[in-house]
C-alpha cells in the first residue's frame, strides 16, 4: 500500500549527485587548482590571508543578504550604506577625539556608531518595504542613491580621513588576528557559522524560506510575516555596520567610491551559492563559497598574466549566469 511507501522508501532522489548542490564546490576546487598551477605563491599563507580578509566585508554582508533574498526580498543599498556608515563613523570618531583622547573608548564609540547606523538604515528599508508595502527593489534602489549622495556630501566630494593618531590604534583590527588568522577572517567565519545554523536549524531560517516560497501560506500559517521580513533587513543593516567596522581600519578613509558595487557582488555571491533569487530557499555555506569564488577570480587574474585583470568582471559575469542556468535546470526537470 502506498501508505507504507512513505515510511520505507529512502530519499533516493536526494542522494543522487546534484549539480546544484555540488556545483559551487566544484567551481571553487577548480579555481584553486588553476590558481595553484599558475602561480606557486597562490596557496601561500600571505596570499590566502589576503584573499580571505578582503572578501570578509562582502562576505559578512552576503550572509545577511542570503536571508533577505531567501525570504523573497532584495537589498541594493548595502554598498552605499557601507560607505555612508564608514563616513559617519569616521566623522564621529574624529569629533570625539578632542574630548575622549586617543584610546580604546573612541574606537568603541566608532564601532557603536557603525552598528547603530547600520541597524537604523536596515530598519528604515524594512519599514518601507513591509509596512508601506513598496517593492524591495524600488525602496533599496532609492536608499542606495540617498546613502551614496549623503556620503559624498559628508565628504564634500572628497575623502573623509580618520585622524592619523586613531588610525595607528585602529589598524590592528584589520591587520592583526589570533593564531595567525586575521580578525576580518575570524569575524566572517563566526558570522557565516551563525548564519548557517540560523538558516538550517532555527525557526527564523525556516520562516524566511516559507515566506519566500509563498508569502500568503506563511501568513495563513500564523507566521508573523512582516516581523520576519523586517528582521532580515535589520540584520543585514547590522552586518553592514559590522563589515564597516572591519573595513575602516584598512584604509582609514571613506569617500564617494567606497563600497561601490558591493551590493551586486554580495547578491552575485548569494546566487552563485545556490540561493534562489525569487526566494524560498537559502544556503549560507553556498554564499560563503560564492564570495570566495568571486574574489579568487580577481586574485588569480592579478597573479598571472595569461588573462588581463580587466576581464575580471567578464569572468565573474559568466560564472553568475552559469550558476543561474544550473538553478533553472533543476526547476524545469521533472
Amino acid at each position: 500500500m502506498a501508505a507504507t511507501d512513505t515510511a520505507t522508501t529512502p530519499q533516493r532522489v536526494a542522494r543522487k549527485f546534484d549539480l546544484m548542490v555540488w556545483g559551487p564546490v566544484l567551481a571553487l576546487a577548480a579555481l584553486i587548482v588553476v590558481g595553484a598551477l599558475m602561480n606557486p605563491n597562490f596557496l601561500g599563507y600571505a596570499n590566502i590571508t589576503n584573499v580571505l580578509a578582503r572578501s570578509a566585508f562582502i562576505g559578512i554582508i552576503a550572509v545577511g543578504m542570503t536571508f533577505v533574498i531567501a525570504s523573497g526580498g532584495l537589498d541594493l543599498s548595502v554598498g552605499s550604506m557601507a560607505a555612508f556608515v564608514a563616513g559617519l563613523m569616521i566623522l564621529v570618531m574624529n569629533a570625539a577625539l578632542p574630548t575622549l583622547g586617543v584610546g580604546i573608548p573612541v574606537i568603541l564609540l566608532g564601532m557603536l556608531t557603525a552598528i547603530v547606523a547600520g541597524v537604523i538604515a536596515g530598519f528604515i528599508n524594512g519599514v518601507l518595504i513591509t509596512k508601506l508595502g513598496i517593492e524591495a527593489f524600488i525602496v533599496t534602489l532609492g536608499s542606495m542613491g540617498i546613502y551614496r549622495s549623503l556620503v559624498t556630501w559628508l565628504a564634500d566630494g572628497g575623502t573623509l580621513s580618520l585622524d592619523f593618531s586613531l588610525r595607528t590604534l585602529y589598524r590592528p583590527v584589520y591587520y592583526d588576528g589570533i593564531l595567525g588568522i586575521a580578525w576580518p577572517i575570524i569575524v566572517f567565519a563566526v558570522v557565516a557559522i551563525i548564519g548557517e545554523i540560523a538558516m538550517r536549524r532555527s525557526r527564523f531560517g525556516r520562516y524566511c524560506a516559507a515566506i519566500g516560497s509563498n508569502n500568503e501560506v506563511a501568513r495563513y500559517s500564523s507566521v508573523s510575516v512582516d516581523r520576519v521580513r523586517m528582521a532580515t533587513y535589520v540584520i543585514l543593516g547590522l552586518l553592514v555596520g559590522l563589515a564597516t567596522i572591519m573595513y575602516v581600519p584598512r584604509l582609514g578613509s571613506a569617500s564617494a567610491s567606497t563600497g561601490v558595487l558591493w551590493e551586486l557582488e554580495a547578491i552575485a555571491a548569494v546566487i552563485i551559492g545556490g540561493t534562489v533569487l525569487k526566494g524560498g530557499f537559502g544556503r549560507v555555506w553556498g554564499t560563503v563559497i560564492g564570495v570566495i569564488i568571486l574574489s579568487l577570480i580577481g586574485n588569480i587574474l592579478n597573479l598571472t598574466d595569461a588573462v588581463s585583470p580587466y576581464l575580471n568582471g567578464a569572468i565573474q559575469g559568466v560564472i553568475i549566469i552559469l550558476a543561474v542556468i544550473l538553478q533553472r535546470d533543476k526547476k524545469t526537470r521533472t
Binding site: R203, R206, S213, V217, R219, Y220, V223
Partner: peptide, 24 residues
C-alpha cells in the same frame, strides 16, 4: 483555508516543512 494551493501549503517544500510550519 479553503485555498490549499495558494494559502495552505508550500508546494515546493516537503511534507515535513509544511506539517510543522504553524506549530514550529
Amino acid at each position: 483555508t479553503e485555498d490549499r494551493k495558494g494559502r495552505g501549503l508550500l508546494l515546493d517544500k516537503s511534507m515535513r516543512e509544511n506539517l510543522t510550519l504553524q506549530a514550529l
